[in-house]
Amino acid sequence: MLIHSQIVEFKAEEASTFGYLAHPKGEGTFPGVVVLQEWWGIDTHIQQVTERLAQEGFAALAPDLYRGQVATTVEEAQRLAQQLDRQSALQEIQQAIAYLENSTLVTPNKVGLLGFGMGGSLAAMLASTGHQPGALVIFYGGSGDPNNPSHQEAIQTTNAPLLGIYGGEDETISPEYIRWLEDKLTAYGKEHQIIVYPQATRSFFNTTQDSYRAEDADDAWQHTLAWLRKYLVKG
């Protein structure tokens, strides 16, 4: 499928925010997906994900939460992630969703969230604060505190159908936490699916990292497309 990609500008709290937009060429409307970056920024990987979604028939927008900065080392990524104002980032994500919802490219009320790492955490945060995307896909997001009542409340208030994808060897997220999360989602009656790739580490989907695992990444991509299509296309 032929696609078109460009940098677009939208407003968040009266300030300009930019994002990387990709969509199929031609007339028609498409389901929308907001793609949320790993702690590296809007790098080659995130641009490729956005373009791959467009090739599959989605209008995809990745808001640039770092405002042009892209980390190339772990130290830079840690610094940028720590400096990011989470509340401002959530507002910018909401504006990205609004941009798609108001675009002539996008089927009304059919916008989902796809987040990686830090972006997965932000997607979960937004979905628990009252804004319910049409679908929610999280790749190796953050690990919450099961003993913190607010974390359980966040799960309880999230109504978006959730696909969670994790690596079994991810040192930042324990298998115990993943089991706890799935138990809570089930107990609260939330539409969800949790997939764990036993041999994968964090960022196994990222083609630019040594942690990339092609077979697991390909399988995870098919699950992602199926989830988005189920809730954004067929719903």
Rank of each mutant, 00 (worst) to 15 (best):
L105E: 06
T73H: 08
S103I: 09
L105R: 15
R79F: 06
G119Y: 05
A96D: 07
G119S: 07
V111M: 10
Q83T: 09
A123T: 09
P108D: 03
G112N: 02
R86P: 01
T107S: 14
Y99G: 11
L80H: 04
E76Y: 07
A81P: 02
E101M: 11
T104C: 06
V111G: 15
V74C: 02
L100K: 05
G119H: 08
T107I: 13
L114G: 14
R86E: 14
L84P: 00
T129L: 15
G115H: 08
Y99S: 05
G112S: 02
E92F: 00
I97Q: 06
Q78F: 08
N102K: 07
G117M: 03
V74N: 03
V106W: 09
L90G: 11
V111S: 06
G117I: 03
R86A: 11
I97F: 10
M118P: 03
V74H: 05
Q78S: 10
E75V: 15
D85I: 01
L122G: 01
G130C: 10
S121C: 03
Q83K: 14
I93S: 04
I97K: 06
S121F: 10
K110D: 02
A96H: 04
T104G: 09
Q78C: 07
G119R: 06
L122V: 00
E76F: 03
T107W: 06
S103W: 06
M118V: 05
V111Q: 13
S121K: 13
M118H: 04
A77T: 00
K110M: 04
I93P: 03
L84A: 01
E92H: 00
K110T: 06
G120D: 04
Q94A: 13
L113D: 02
E101C: 12
P108N: 02
L84R: 01
M118E: 01
P108G: 02
G119K: 06
Q87D: 06
G115N: 11
S121M: 08
G112R: 00
M118F: 14
Y99K: 08
M118L: 15
L126E: 04
L100Q: 09
N109W: 05
M125R: 15
S128G: 12
V111A: 07
Q87L: 04
A124I: 12
S103P: 13
A81Q: 08
Q83A: 13
Q78H: 09
E101K: 14
S103A: 09
R79H: 08
E92P: 00
E76C: 02
E92C: 00
M125Y: 14
R79N: 05
A96W: 09
F116H: 02
I97D: 04
A124F: 15
V74W: 05
A127G: 13
G130K: 09
M125T: 11
Q91R: 15
N102S: 11
E76T: 04
G117P: 03
L122Y: 05
V106P: 05
A77C: 00
E76A: 14
D85R: 00
A98E: 11
Q91L: 12
M118D: 01
Q87H: 08
L113H: 01
D85P: 01
V74A: 09
T73Q: 10
V106Y: 09
Q82N: 13
N102M: 05
M125S: 14
R86S: 08
S121R: 07
A96L: 05
T129C: 07
R86V: 11
